[in-house]
Design a binder for these strands. Structure first.
Length: 480
RNA sequence: CGGGGUGUGGCGCAGCUGGCAGCGCACCGCGUUUGGGACGCGGGGGUCGUCGGUUCGAAUCCGACCACCCCGACCA
């Protein structure tokens, strides 16, 4: 149970986040440094995320499989950029069964290499392509500085790995899955995102092109919430993923990979949460409606509970996820605060007055206090509740979009840009040179987040940093 | 790895000019409560981060070590 209040976001956003994750019982610190324990409430949220994504993966022709947790060290070393990118953060197993291993095994930081190895065995002909596999699992990256959900040494995710006969197909797949992430994020998590292309310095180790969905948190920092990579033939060459094409010629396949992790939970927390606690989008919430029966004595309890039970059964049968908080010895007020901390989108109060009048009280989590409270008839309650959940889902998205859009600026000078990225994102022309990117980072700590795929101006402009001609605009922002 | 800080019941802390451990919350029991964080009474729980030193006596003084946190470095 949650007891005290959270540190207000305005006072210390980071403290607010850490306290919220613990008090909402999403996760807890583990005895292993940097690793988290995902508690049942947090894991149920993750399961709902998994379901929504998995459905979309299946609809786009993918199947699930499982690859080993351990990867021979030599595999990592086969792709130069890949090993350079990941070697500082590898966990390595050197012993097994009491004996030193002939070859160290790395605990997978991602599975391109071992999946590449398997693909080379499985792919012989153009008829074997495309190969579209996804894996749900965990990976380990030895992070120096960790934060629950956002950056942990071990995290849970899915990684899709596909192989294609042509560059065009693989590039299409890369963008198709970015679209899947975008659709999921906006329509399930109510987290608005901007999809775009990563700069050369920000892209995945071993990729030809990385794409990303970037979300703005309430402190205006950017969070990369999902990524999709076009790997070209880099891994195909490293692992000899070759096929015979229709002209009987041997060709390297074109591969992609894409992932979304438990970091998404962090995105949901920091997009929607308020000073009372978590606010979950109804479509993903483990509990969509919490019912709180109210009574003063046994006589009232005897009147209230049958009505509560009846409504519970009706709503449950309609497919709603709900819970009756029938804990004894706690005041209703305490329970309200307790469920608000956990972010349940809708609260239903049923007391003696409601039993008498055939009504219930509904309180929206996204609108605190009296303003969000309404008294509705028990008639047509299923439809009323479903409508209200839909309304809340839409309101959360709308509010997040408004927040984001009001914190994106188009600075006209470099001096302005330096100001803008202190409390928002700058959308500016950039010449795409590493020097200019590095200068911004050095001066402001803001990095390039992405070159958005949509919403680019029709005309060229001048780089905000050096003034050289620039074709495209990029978002500069401080990031998690 | 550099700078700063903290280690005392589950959590947050007090005690630190040495005298044998305490408060709030949480937890357990009983009773009264219950439409926005209830109250009373009664309980249980700590080798004071570790090791060593000083002392008749150490949570307290000294030394070493360990762990964690914050800032920085690092972070597909």
């Amino acid at each position: 149970m949650s007891d005290e209040k959270l540190t207000p976001r305005s006072e210390n956003f980071s403290d607010w986040y850490n306290e919220l994750v613990l008090k909402a019982e999403l996760a807890d610190y583990s005895p292993v440094r940097g690793c988290m324990v995902v508690r049942p409430y947090g894991w149920t949220l993750w399961e709902n995320i998994q379901q929504a994504l998995d459905k979309r993966f299946k609809e786009t022709g993918h199947v699930n499989a499982a690859f080993p947790l351990f990867i021979p060290m030599s595999f990592l070393e086969k792709e130069k950029a890949h090993v350079e990118g990941f070697s500082p953060e590898l966990a390595v197993v050197t012993h097994g069964g009491g004996e030193k291993l002939e070859e160290p095994l790395v605990v997978r930081p991602t599975s391109e290499t071992i999946i590449g190895y398997m693909y080379s065995k499985w792919i012989k002909s153009w008829r074997d392509l495309p190969l579209l596999i996804n894996q749900w699992g965990n990976v380990v990256r030895w992070e120096l500085r960790t934060k629950l959900f956002l950056r942990t040494a071990e995290f849970y995710w899915q990684e899709g790995h596909t192989a294609h006969a042509t560059e065009q197909e693989a590039r299409e797949e890369t963008l198709r899955m970015l679209d899947v992430y975008t659709d999921f994020s906006i329509n399930e998590a109510a987290v608005p995102v901007i999809k775009g292309i990563k700069s050369e310095t920000e892209k995945f180790a071993g990729a030809v092109m990385s794409t990303t969905i970037e979300a703005m948190m309430q402190d205006t920092r950017a969070l990369q919430s999902g990524t999709s990579h076009y790997l070209g033939q880099n891994f195909a060459k490293a692992f000899e993923i070759q096929f015979t094409n229709q002209n009987n010629e041997l060709e390297f396949a074109y591969t992609t990979s894409w992932g979304l992790s438990t970091r998404m939970i962090g995105a949901i927390i920091m997009t929607h949460g308020d000073d009372q606690g978590l606010i979950l989008p109804p479509r993903l919430a483990p509990i969509q409606v919490v019912m709180i029966p109210i009574y003063k004595n046994d006589a009232e309890k005897a009147a209230v509970m049958p009505v509560t039970d009846r409504i519970f059964r009706e709503l449950k049968a309609a497919g709603l996820r709900l819970k009756v908080d029938d804990r004894e010895g706690l005041t209703p007020g305490f329970k309200y605060n307790d469920w608000e901390m956990r972010g349940v989108p809708l609260r239903m109060e049923i007391g003696p007055k409601d039993v008498e009048k055939g009504s219930v009280a509904l309180a929206r989590r996204d609108i605190p206090g009296k303003a969000g409270k309404s008294f509705v008839s028990q008639e047509n309650l299923i439809a009323t509740v479903q409508e209200m959940l839909t309304t809340i889902q839409a309101a959360l998205l709308e509010r997040a979009i408004a927040m984001r859009d009001s914190h994106i600026d188009d600075p006209q000078t470099y001096e302005e840009l330096k100001q803008v990225v202190q409390s928002g994102w700058a959308f500016s022309y950039w010449c795409e040179s590493k020097q200019c990117e590095a200068k911004v980072k050095e001066d402001t700590k803001a990095s390039t987040r992405c070159i958005p795929i949509e919403g680019q101006p029709e005309h060229e402009g001048k780089c905000i940093v050096c003034g050289a001609p620039a074709k495209r605009k990029v978002y500069f922002a401080k990031a998690y």
